[in-house]
Design a protein around this nucleic acid. Sequence first.
RNA 1: GGAACGAUGGCAGAGCGGCCAAAUGCAUCCGCCUUGAAAGCGGAAGGGUGUCACAGCCCCGGGGGUUCAAAUCCCUCUCGUUCCGCCA
Length: 430
Amino acid sequence: MIDIRLLRNDPEAVRAAMARRGKPELLDQLTAAASFDSQLREIALERDANRNKINELSKQVGQLRRAGSTIEAEAAMAESRERGDAEKRLAGRADEMQARLYDLLLRIPNVPHPDAPDGAGEDDNPVVKGPIAMPIAFADYQQVPHWETGSALGILDNERAVKISGSMFTMMRGLGATMSRALCQFALDANADEFEEIRPPSLVTTATLTATGQLPKFADDAYAIERDDLWCIPTAEVPLTSLAAGEILEEADLPMKFMAFSPCYRREAGSAGRDTRGMLRTHEFDKVEILSYATAEQAPALLQMMVGRAEALLAKLELPYRIIEICTGDMGQSHHRSFDLEVFAPGSDRWLEVSSVSWFSDYQGRRADMRYRPTGEKGTRIAHTLNGSALAVPRVWAAIVENYRQADGSVRIPDALLPYMRGATEIRSK
RNA sequence: GGAACGAUGGCAGAGCGGCCAAAUGCAUCCGCCUUGAAAGCGGAAGGGUGUCACAGCCCCGGGGGUUCAAAUCCCUCUCGUUCCGCCA
């Protein structure tokens, strides 16, 4: 959520920042929120004054009773009773206004960081680094889509995945399955020096999915288990962000860094027909996520650090990659500043987004009610959150199968994964 | 799924419908004492909203109700503990 006080005190600054997202309706939402807010404050003021009077009268009743002044006590009770009706009416209106304001605020996206590049959509995202390790030309034998190589080698069996679960599910077999797990282990091991490993639940409550920003606006993208009022997580970001929900942290403990392996579930409601071949877009996939809680001051350096962490994995896997920054028109709802890492897949002949690292400022922290106590200061502040995919398995798997394909149709295992492959150095058909 | 009990400040733990934002202990912070520390003594200290600052208002798991007045009574939900049932 954006800071309603900031909108109240400096509406022009918020509007100017929000305008950079290029969606005029957002400005209308800001206007509506500001109007609800001022109405709410007006009613609350009146309600509180009335409550104060009731509280005072009630106190008097007790005192008068004890003093034996029954008649005066009766009078105070009568007056207080009358005010009770006004209290009900005012409280009802205030609650209603509060609910409307809250619901609206949940749907308003974060404001972009001043340094985030302007742009209308994904075509305007600037490349900020790379391409790195990009060959001048790819060999013919590399320009084979991973789904062809995968089924030829028996490591990808999407036909049966579809039989079992329907379209847009995938299944790896043999050394393909092993390599999938190897990628996760590799990503976890590479970050274990600084990030605490968490194995979070994959099913979460509505409140948890609201904190990160998926709800209420993007309910169609998530799998719901309605009978139990639970949701399948689309990323480990969701449970990790709510780890400290409702808590007050100490500044001395920040930044806090976590990593988690988890399955990720996505309905892909808006992308029917896209990337239907292979495993570039599936309803369920594995991912290792890294995430930090931080102060506002610590966040920018952490963002760079986390981009560096994700990059290091691609470099160690010796895949061709580049880093792009997300422009204001393409930014996700919760994002304040965001970078994507892309790997080139010569068989699919395209760049694949394999990681997204973002700073959410206090947007998620406010939704999750996650604060910290600044050392030597009174009060609390909303914690900042940052997260990123360390490694999303299927697309990296696909990129490896294409980049590492050899002239005889086999696939060499990247050196970085050798410790996790039970001695296998390549994958070839039996 | 059934039964019983429970949920109060960082933790533990009192709390008669009004004198309760809430005793006490531990932990924390600041003084005094001490060469320094411990002990001892004295003091400070919850969160939110709101205000220039006060005031005011809200918060005793969530929601609802009774009452002039609710941490306290009633209903309900959630969670926890124990026992039973089931089960990787």
